[in-house]
Lab assay of single mutants.
Amino acid sequence: RYRTTFTSYQLEELERAFQKTHYPDVFTREELAMRLDLTEARVQVWFQNRRAKWRK
């Protein structure tokens, strides 16, 4: 599977959502995914990776 490349707008929005909550529920993820034209799975994985980065 190829690596997803996020646009700067998508990253800004994902980071903004991350500032609000590190653990968005499925509705929040679905809403973000639709708004950013991504799949909910991509959003979920982004948050997993972002939390890992945050913990370091």
Rank of each mutant, 00 (worst) to 15 (best):
R1G: 11
R1V: 05
R1C: 08
R1P: 06
R1S: 14
Y2L: 14
Y2M: 12
R3D: 10
T4F: 04
T4H: 07
T5F: 06
T5L: 07
F6C: 10
F6T: 06
T7F: 04
T7P: 02
S8T: 11
Y9Q: 15
Y9C: 13
Y9S: 06
Q10H: 04
Q10K: 02
L11Y: 04
L11S: 09
E12H: 06
E12L: 05
E13V: 08
E13P: 00
E13K: 03
L14M: 10
E15V: 02
R16C: 05
R16P: 00
A17C: 09
A17K: 06
A17I: 10
F18N: 01
F18W: 05
Q19R: 06
Q19P: 02
Q19K: 08
K20T: 07
K20P: 00
K20H: 08
T21F: 03
T21D: 11
H22P: 12
H22L: 11
Y23R: 11
V26Y: 15
F27Y: 03
T28F: 11
R29N: 04
E30C: 11
E31P: 01
L32D: 01
L32Y: 03
L32K: 02
M34A: 11
M34Y: 07
R35W: 04
R35Q: 04
L36W: 01
L38C: 07
L38K: 00
T39R: 08
E40A: 07
E40C: 07
E40G: 07
E40R: 08
A41K: 06
A41F: 02
A41I: 09
A41N: 05
R42E: 15
R42K: 08
V43N: 01
V45G: 09
V45T: 08
W46M: 02
W46K: 00
W46S: 00
F47Q: 02
F47D: 01
Q48R: 10
Q48M: 09
Q48H: 12
N49S: 15
N49E: 15
N49Y: 07
R50N: 04
R51P: 01
A52F: 08
A52T: 11
A52K: 08
K53F: 05
K53D: 15
K53S: 15
K53G: 13
K53M: 06
K53N: 08
W54P: 08
W54S: 10
W54T: 13
R55M: 10
K56F: 08
